[in-house]
Amino acid sequence: KKPMSASALFVQDHRPQFLIENPKTSLEDATLQIEELWKTLSEEEKLKYEEKATKDLERYNSQMKR
Rank of each mutant, 00 (worst) to 15 (best):
Leu9Asn: 03
Asp56Pro: 03
Ala53Asp: 02
Glu51Tyr: 02
Thr25Asn: 07
Gln63Gly: 11
Leu57Met: 14
Thr40Val: 06
Leu41Thr: 13
Glu45Cys: 05
Leu32His: 07
Thr40Asp: 10
Leu47Asn: 15
Leu47Tyr: 07
Ala53Thr: 04
Gln12Val: 03
Thr54Arg: 12
Leu9Phe: 09
Asp56Gly: 09
Leu9Ala: 01
Lys55Asp: 12
Met4Cys: 01
Asn61Lys: 14
Leu37Thr: 10
Thr40Pro: 02
Phe10Tyr: 15
Asp56Lys: 04
Thr40Ser: 09
Thr31Leu: 03
Leu32Ala: 11
Tyr60Ala: 08
Lys65Ser: 15
Met64Asn: 09
Asn22Asp: 03
Ser26Cys: 10
Arg59Asn: 08
Tyr60Glu: 10
Arg59Ala: 14
Glu44Asn: 04
Lys48Phe: 10
Thr25Ile: 01
Lys55Pro: 04
Met4Pro: 12
Thr40Glu: 13
Tyr60Leu: 07
Arg59Leu: 13
Glu45Ile: 11
Ser62Thr: 06
Asn61Val: 06
Lys39Glu: 11
Arg15Asp: 01
Glu43Ser: 13
Leu9Trp: 05
Ser7Met: 15
Glu35Gln: 03
Lys1Arg: 07
Ser42Asp: 13
Leu9Pro: 00
Pro16Thr: 08
Glu35Tyr: 11
Lys52Gln: 13
Lys46Phe: 00
Lys46Gly: 00
Asn61Ile: 03
Thr54Asp: 13
Lys55Trp: 08
Thr31Asp: 10
Ser42Pro: 12
Lys2Ile: 03
Ala8Asp: 08
Thr40Cys: 15
Ser26Gly: 07
Leu37Cys: 06
Ser42Leu: 00
Thr25Gln: 09
Ala30Phe: 01
Tyr60Asp: 14
Arg66Pro: 15
Lys1Thr: 04
Leu27Glu: 02
Lys2Arg: 04
Leu32Met: 14
Ala53His: 05
Ser7Glu: 14
Leu47Ser: 13
Ser62Gly: 09
Met4Phe: 10
His14Arg: 02
Thr54Ile: 07
Thr25Glu: 08
Lys46Pro: 00
Thr25Phe: 15
Thr54Glu: 15
Leu37Ser: 11
Thr31Val: 03
Glu43Leu: 12
Lys65Asn: 08
Phe10Gly: 00
Ala53Gln: 02
Pro16Glu: 11
Lys65Ala: 14
Glu58Asn: 05
Tyr49Pro: 02
Ser5Ile: 04
Leu57Trp: 10
Glu35Leu: 08
Arg59Glu: 14
Lys65Pro: 14
Ser26Lys: 08
Thr31Asn: 03
Trp38Gly: 05
Leu32Ser: 08
Ala6Tyr: 00
Tyr49Asn: 01
Arg15Leu: 13
Phe18Ser: 03
Leu57Glu: 12
Asn61Pro: 07
Leu57Asn: 07
Leu9Asp: 15
Phe10Ser: 03
Glu43Asn: 14
Gln63Arg: 08
Thr40Gln: 11
Ser26Pro: 07
Lys55Thr: 12
Asn61Asp: 09
Glu21Asp: 03
Thr25Ser: 03
